[in-house]
Design a protein around this nucleic acid. Structure first.
Length: 854
RNA sequence: GCCCCAGUGGCGAAAUGGUAGACGCGGCAGACUCAAAAUCUGUUGCCGGCAACGGCGUGCUGGUUCGAGUCCGGCCUGGGGCACCA
């Protein structure tokens, strides 16, 4: 029995593809283009199973589309700026640039062993000045277009390290390194006006018909368009007013309090003379800036003692609280609370003993008896206890009160978005410098074109906390471009979401020096036809890219409506978790099976098997793809990634699964290289006569070709693999002793090999060569199914009595309904189930089912 | 807390509103072998039955329908996101 030599074979074909430049893409007006892109990796050190899954899926699509005649662009690059590089600098004393570039080199090598059909000549790394210089120019153009502006906003501040913290660096309100209670600080920062495109980004979702519905829904909710009323309360004893926004103006007569954000100007003003309030605000600020922390915290309020006057009753006043759940970023940073019809307001009212007056009565409730207990009523109904609104439904009441406020000049009906402008300033080193200069005289001055790019200096130190750019002895000192006097560079860098907001365009002409990309290249390649990545990017990255594309269009860089015409979001790769006797996490590599078949630690100690969870360093449940590829080869790893689980769902990595993939590879190898008979030459004509068995196998070949093509189009890789296995099982039944069977074996083997090529490209090439072909499979077109052979002329129909299966019948395809009905009623089992009862109705679904209703 | 998604045999899963469990893993039985591994063959949702066959069965619960894993309502559990992780 010959053995398939994976290592030698995979390396040889990878070299051959490279030698032939099989995957180098060029614009070609004569062929339809297809741009396949997987989300580019952050160079964290080594590739992980998530990458293997992502790039396997993308490569299957790229190879499949190439075989279907498309001019495919399939590039790869590195999302190379970011926080981990700076953490590595602190922990391992390596420079972020060195760390990043070494990681890129390692990961590039690892990716190449996967045998991906990537055009490596287009590789980019976003930390290279040749890349990020272009986004400096884009930013300056956005400034000119009014899409970039500065405003004060909050950051997490670690008072011990004197450093700005990312949300993930705040753990339970404390800095991750120092353990100090985090404070919020206000800094002047750059923002991009994504809200200017809120409506367009919302409308554009409708055109994205090849995006998952759930991603469009999440984006829609994120943008959060809502209509409501913005109005002003008079504040008792003061001249100023308190402006609030509400989506439920109809419930205004059920109001029992007003609440403002801890960061509302009024709160700050009152706190100046109220130490208790100041302490409450400080407590709110210790929650950090993340919405999650704020929303999950216990709802608390502080009565300011101020009262606001009800807009429709000068005698009616409401207390004003500072509340920890009111966000300054949304609406006006102030609300009114109607406890009966909002759960959060109700919880708050119960806690502070505020009145709860129902003003909307559900249609089926008794108006006199309707009361609200612990659950707010948020459904439709009729207004009550609401003076001029009484008797109106919720919608009419909203309109009526809006109109009255507008005519009284107290407020106006408006549209509000949840979406906030995109803050892009980061007080960090490892990022693209923001190209502006601060002049004492001229304020903010953009760096002039001829002084671009602003290069990130590499001679920095990490011995002090804070941003090394700020500590650099000379870098920030420069001359004002306007007056030439000493001025300071901005030391903040860009959010790394900026790099990933346009890399797909850079890939179209990655080596253009004087521009971000060539117009004719982006006009040809964009939009990306199929984008593939994790669901975790459903909102931020994808929304920012959609915005950036529009901003680039506005500034004349390109003309594309949407960057990603098709999107596929794959699931995570999970693994069992293990703990030793002391409760410490154990890596799968440290686990063995003892002679009793139990899982034990390498030292023989007991192992507790935990839940299946996302592979993560912290839980040590990681399997290194490099080891897998080294042992089983890239094809086995790829096959396993595609086999069992549908790609959008989470996949559990198991030893048994990779073994199964490995076994199948060897099975295919043996089946074809040790075929039972000499096969007829490739391309010989079909014999005139085929045995029933051979003809049946032939039908299955064509059915499989048709099915696999459809499955790959629809990302049903697991089904495609199942079909391919089914066909190989059937072909294994043929002994090839008759001329007909031998011919069908040749047809079947060739079809099999061509169909598995996108999934297991190395094995497929090797077998294709073995079948006697001189030109590589990568240059072959996708096989075509004979439609006549791919459809059966006999179908199995189910016969039900009252919806219960009682028999199945073999009937000619598309048999007449009355004939099907006659045959069904003639069946003995059906007659038995009818028990002599009269037939009321017979439903015949062609080629599927016959349901007899009694 | 809010938004989104998922839940089917021992396990991964399949199933345009129409035969639930294709394909694979594991198990069991057998072939080959001195033996084992590898490989091959058969079998395998659960309960009852020698069998034919019957009953039950898609997280829980209620509904729509001739017919529901699939559609609708309410729950439970797990996962993703929440604007400075990427």
């Amino acid at each position: 029995m010959s053995r398939y030599n994976v290592k030698e074979t995979e390396a040889r074909w990878q070299a051959e593809w490279e030698r032939r430049s099989c995957f180098t893409a060029a614009e070609d007006a004569g062929r339809p283009k297809y741009y396949v892109l997987e989300m580019f990796p952050y160079p964290s050190g080594r590739i992980h199973m998530g990458h293997v899954r992502n790039y396997t899926i993308g490569d299957v699509i790229a190879r499949f589309k190439r075989a279907k005649g498309f001019n495919v662009l399939h590039p790869m690059g590195w999302d190379a700026f970011g926080l981990p590089a700076e953490n590595a600098a602190l922990e391992k004393k390596t420079h972020p640039a060195k760390w990043t570039r070494e990681n890129i080199a390692t990961m590039r090598g690892q990716l190449k062993t996967m045998g991906l059909s990537i055009d490596w000549s287009r590789e980019v790394a976003t930390c290279d000045v040749e890349y990020y210089r272009h986004e400096q120019k884009m930013f300056l153009d956005f400034m000119k277009a009014g899409l970039a502006y500065r405003k004060e906003s909050w950051v997490n501040w670690d008072p011990v390290d004197n450093t700005v913290l990312a949300n993930e660096q705040v753990i339970d309100g404390r800095g991750w390194r120092t353990g100090a209670l985090v404070e919020k600080r206000k800094l002047s920062q750059w923002f991009l006006k994504i809200t200017a495109y809120a409506d367009e980004l919302l409308k554009g979702l409708e055109s994205l018909d090849r995006w998952p519905e759930r991603v469009r829904l999440m984006q829609e909710n994120w943008i959060g368009k809502s209509t409501g009323v913005r109005f002003r309360f008079d504040v008792q004893g003061r001249d100023d007013k308190l402006e609030v926004f509400t989506t439920r103006p109809d419930t205004l007569f059920g109001a029992s309090f007003a609440a403002i954000s801890a960061n509302h100007p009024l709160a700050s003003e009152l706190a100046a003379n109220n130490p208790a309030l100041a302490e409450f605000i400080a407590e709110c600020n210790r929650l950090g800036t993340s919405e999650e922390a704020i929303e999950t915290a216990e709802k608390k309020g502080f009565d300011t003692g101020l009262r606001v006057v009800h807009p429709f009753d000068p005698a009616w006043t409401l207390p004003v609280y500072v509340a920890n759940f009111v966000l300054m970023e949304y609406g006006t940073g102030a609300i009114f609370g109607c406890p009966a019809h909002d759960q959060r307001d109700l919880d708050f009212a119960r806690k502070y003993d505020l009145p709860v007056t129902p003003v909307v009565i559900p249609a089926d409730a008794d108006p006199a008896a309707f009361a609200v207990g612990t659950e707010a009523y948020t459904g439709p109904g009729v207004l009550k206890n609401s003076r001029f609104l009484d008797g109106l439904d919720v919608e009419s009441a909203k309109q009526e009160i809006g109109k009255r406020m507008e005519s009284a000049g107290q407020g106006e009906r408006t549209t509000q978005y949840r979406l906030r402008d995109w803050g892009v300033s980061r007080q960090r080193y490892w990022g693209c410098p923001i190209p502006v200069i601060h002049c004492p005289e001229h304020g903010i001055v953009p760096v002039p074109d001829d002084q671009l790019p602003v290069v990130l200096p590499e001679d920095v130190t990490f011995d002090k906390p804070g941003n090394p750019l700020d500590h650099h002895p000379t870098w920030k000192h420069t001359a004002c471009p306007t007056c030439g006097k000493p001025a300071l560079r901005e030391t903040d860098t860009f959010d790394t979401f900026i790099e990933s907001s346009w890399y797909f365009a850079r890939f179209c002409s990655p080596h253009t020096a004087d521009a971000a990309f060539e117009r004719k290249a982006v006009d040809y390649w964009l939009p990306v036809d199929q984008y593939i990545g994790g669901i975790e990017h459903a909102v931020l990255h994808l929304l920012y890219s959609r915005f950036w594309t529009r901003a680039l269009t506005q500034c004349g860089y390109l003309d594309v409506a949407e960057p990603f015409a098709g999107l596929f979001t794959q699931g995570m790769v999970n693994h069992e978790t293990y703990k030793d006797a002391n409760g410490a996490w154990l890596s799968p590599a440290d686990i063995v099976r003892n002679d009793k078949g139990e899982l034990v630690a390498a030292d023989g100690g007991p192992v507790a098997v935990g839940r299946v969870e996302k592979m993560s360093k912290s839980k040590k449940n990681v399997v290194d793809p490099a080891n897998i590829i080294d042992t089983y080869g890239a094809d086995a790893a790829r096959l396993f990634m595609l086999s069992d689980s549908p790609p959008e769902r989470d996949l559990e990595w198991t030893e048994a699964g990779i073994d199964g993939a490995w076994r199948y590879i060897n099975r295919l190898w043996r089946m074809i290289t040790e075929a039972p008979v000499a096969l007829p030459a490739a391309g010989s004509p079909a014999p005139a006569e085929l045995s029933d068995k051979a003809q049946g196998a032939r039908r299955l070949i064509h059915k499989t070709v048709a099915g696999v093509g459809e499955d790959l189009d629809k990302f049903r890789f697991n089904k495609a693999v199942a079909r391919v296995r089914e066909l190989s099982n059937a072909l294994a039944e043929l002994d090839g002793k008759s001329a007909g069977e031998a011919w069908v074996l040749r047809e079947g083997f060739e079809a099999l090999v061509r169909m598995v090529a996108p999934m297991m490209p190395h094995l497929a090439e090797e077998l294709w060569a073995h079948l006697g072909h001189a030109t590589p499979l990568v240059e072959q077109p996708w096989p075509e199914a004979d439609a006549a052979l791919a459809t059966d002329d006999v179908v199995t129909m189910a016969v039900q009595v009252n919806g219960k299966l009682r028999a199945t019948l073999e009937l000619p395809r598309d048999v007449a309904k009355d004939e099907a009905e006659r045959r069904a009623l003639a069946d003995a089992n059906v007659q038995k189930a009818l028990e002599g009862k009269p037939v009321r109705k017979v439903i015949v679904v062609p080629n599927r089912v016959i349901n007899v209703v009694v």
